[in-house]
């Protein structure tokens, strides 16, 4: 029985919520082990430099922020699940266009997502730590978004387009790095060792997240969306 557009969309959203919940939980565990100790360490240097009270984000003190401990972790888990659901929806959109996927080819899609959302932006912008010296936020956000879109589009063209169009894909892929990311003017008080470890920690954490999301959404799509006719 063919699915209607609404039926297909509903199934994709349900699969994305499921994968997002699992991925968000996994990300939270990885964060606790890998990235969070480094963020807290950087925040001590940030607060020492600015004279602010420790315990949270860097917004103005009168702004609400979650209390340290369970409340902060609860919001982090929720935000992780929502972001992972967003990633899952984008993967599932790709599966829908390409018609078929397995958990194995889902892993390849996950690697593509990792390349687009993590690796390519990190080639220009180091993962930001609290207290580090950074270029203007709007400029960094614009370059980040542009790089994600160009990398995803470029990879899709290279993977799926006709040979001549693949060259256009490669050019689009390289374009953000030819333009170049905004660079900061000074240096921060956060030790370079912490910043270096944070690069390794975020690469590891995000790679595992994307592989898990790729395999999970691939498996769920083949089981619940494309039935038994998935074409790998």
């Amino acid at each position: 029985m063919p699915l209607s557009a609404a039926g297909l969309a509903l199934r994709l959203v349900l699969v994305a919520l499921l994968a997002g919940a699992v991925g968000g939980g996994l990300l939270t565990v990885l964060q606790a082990i890998k990235t969070e100790p480094l963020i807290r360490a950087a925040e001590t240097f940030e607060h020492a430099a600015t004279g602010a009270a420790p315990g949270g984000a860097t917004a103005a003190p009168e702004e609400w922020e979650p209390a340290p401990g369970l409340e902060r972790w609860s919001y982090t888990l929720l935000a992780n699940a929502l972001a992972a659901t967003g990633y899952a929806l984008i993967l599932l959109a790709g599966f829908t266009i390409r018609r078929g996927v397995t958990w194995r080819s889902g892993l390849i899609w996950g690697l593509g997502g990792f390349a687009a959302f993590v690796l390519a932006p990190m080639l220009g912008l180091p993962p930001p730590l609290p207290g580090t010296e950074l270029a203007d936020l709007a400029g960094r956000q614009a370059w980040w978004i542009g790089t994600v879109v160009a990398t995803a589009g470029g990879l899709a063209l290279i993977a799926f387009a006709e040979p001549r169009t693949k060259i256009a894909g490669a050019i689009i892929l390289a374009l953000p790095h030819v333009i170049g990311a905004p660079t900061p003017e000074g240096f921060s008080a956060v030790p370079a060792e912490i910043a270096g470890q944070f690069v390794s920690a975020t690469l590891f954490t995000n790679l595992v997240l994307w592989l898990a999301l790729g395999a999970l959404t691939g498996l769920a799509f083949s089981r619940f969306v494309s039935g038994s006719r998935s074409a790998a």
Binding site: T35, A59, E65, P66, A83, P121, P128, W144, N206
Partner: peptide, 13 residues
């Protein structure tokens, strides 16, 4: 502030 640690972990600007 709610999504602060997530933004750092996912390497968003």
């Amino acid at each position: 502030n709610a999504a602060h640690d997530t933004r750092h972990a996912l390497t968003y600007p």
